[in-house]
Amino acid sequence: MNGQTIACSDTCQAIVDTGTSVIAGHPDSIGAIQEAIGAQSDKYGLFTVNCNLVSSLPEIIITINGIQYPLPSTAYINQFPGSCSSGFQSTSGLWILGDIFLREYFTVFDRGNNRVGFAPSLKA
C-alpha cells in the first residue's frame, strides 16, 4: 500500500477460492491492513470504515510471482446503505483470495498444469 509492504513481506502461500467472499490471511497481517485503512472493530467483530472516506483509501496491491494486481478501495470495502466494512478477514494458515480479488481479475484454473492465471476483468 502506497509503496510499502504492510502484510506478508516474506514468501506466502495463497489459494484462490470462489467460495470465499473476502481476502483472508494471518491475523497479524490482516491487522496491519485493517489499521492502514482505518478500519475499526465494532461490537460484532466486523471491521468498519467511514463510508465518506472510501474514495480516498489507497489501492492495495497484491503481488503474485512478481506481477502486481491492484485492488481499488471500492473492491475491498463492502458498501451497504449506512455502513461500510472491510473485505479483509483473519484466518489461520494460507492466504485466501476470495471474491474481492476474483471480481477484479478474470481467473483461469488450469488443473492439467496445476496453475492459475489472472487477467484484468472487463467492466461494463
Rank of each mutant, 00 (worst) to 15 (best):
G3V: 14
Q68C: 13
R103N: 07
D110E: 11
F80P: 03
S83F: 02
A39S: 06
Q40P: 09
F106H: 15
K43F: 10
V54N: 05
G117H: 11
S56K: 13
P72D: 06
L97H: 04
D28F: 14
N114G: 12
M1P: 12
I37A: 00
T48Q: 05
A36E: 03
T91R: 01
S83W: 00
A36S: 12
I6M: 05
F109H: 07
Y76T: 04
I33R: 00
W95M: 04
A36I: 08
G66C: 14
L94A: 10
T91C: 06
G45N: 07
D99C: 15
F106S: 14
F109M: 11
Q89L: 10
Y105M: 07
R111Q: 15
A24D: 04
S56T: 12
V116G: 05
S86N: 05
N2E: 15
V49A: 03
A75V: 04
G66R: 14
F106Q: 15
S92M: 14
D10E: 13
D42N: 11
I64P: 05
T107K: 09
G25W: 03
G38H: 02
A14T: 07
P27V: 04
I23H: 00
I96W: 00
P58H: 08
W95N: 00
I33T: 01
H26K: 11
K123T: 10
S56H: 15
Y76A: 02
I15W: 02
P70L: 06
T74P: 08
A32I: 09
N78E: 05
S9E: 09
P120W: 00
C84S: 05
V49Q: 02
F106V: 14
T5R: 11
F80S: 10
V108N: 08
L102K: 05
T18Q: 11
V16F: 01
H26S: 15
G25I: 01
R103T: 08
I15P: 00
T5C: 10
F118V: 07
V49E: 03
N65I: 15
I15T: 05
C12A: 11
